[in-house]
Amino acid sequence: MNASSDVSESPVPELILFITGNAPRSHRARKNLAEALESLDLESVEPLEIDLMKHPEHTVNYSVFATPALLRTDDSGDVRVLYGDLSDERKLSNFLGEIRSS
């Protein structure tokens, strides 16, 4: 997890939020994520949002079958997933931990 030694051009781990259309849980997840990023002083982090209703092929490409899902890829290429509407603040902040603001 200690990736500070060789800082690359994109030091921010990629965050992708998978949603499905206008599903209430997708809305809640988007809101919960924004709030968490704000409280962690990570407003600069712009999560990529993928709507699986518009791009169902990404379901298989990213192996995301439950939505909403937050996907985090760190520098070493490790992928971690957090499923759900992100209503569990503690889990969400743990998941977002060590992301550094750019």
Binding site: R25, T67, L82, G84, L86, K91
Partner: peptide
């Protein structure tokens, strides 16, 4: 994989 709340 972790969960945080309900999902669709």
């Amino acid at each position: 994989a972790e969960r945080s709340g309900a999902f669709d």
